[in-house]
Amino acid sequence: MMSRKIWRTVEARFEEVLCALALAVTASCILTQVVMRVIVSEAAPWAEEAAVYGMVLAIYMGASLGVRERAHLRVLLMVNALPHRLRVASIVLADVIWLAFLLVLLWQFAIFLELAFSRPYITPGLGVPKVWFQLFVPAGLGLMIVRMAQVYYRWLIRGDGELPL
């Protein structure tokens, strides 16, 4: 029972907590940069990089959260004009196309990673291979696919009412 509760919290809050931490990293690094320059008059070249990578993580986790909440922006004017069954069909088709796009992107990212791991780029500020941060992208894409599967599982198998638009 306990583990089930933990699992449920993780399911509900995973991306949210990561996003909050990532945004906190971004904000703190920016402030550090300002303080270091103004008060100590020293450069913090790593801070700018860390701020950006925090944002990238927040964006991809936010995208996944957006799938869970069905918050991605669609133009529903034409779809809403359709009769109910066609409307559902149209959205399912749109989601399949979207999924296909995510899979193509993930596949291309695999090719990209092969190069990025074999010929690393060392970030000038933090001095570590950039590819570690680039992994945020496939992680986000993978989570988006998982969340999409979850939405459909709930709708088709558990029968939780309408397909939420």
């Binding site: 320059r37 008059s41 450069a43 000038p124």
Partner: peptide, 13 residues
């Protein structure tokens, strides 16, 4: 003490 803009390059810093 001059505040100098540099690109993000360790050698230049």
């Amino acid at each position: 003490g001059l505040k100098i803009r540099v690109p993000r390059n360790e050698v230049m810093i």
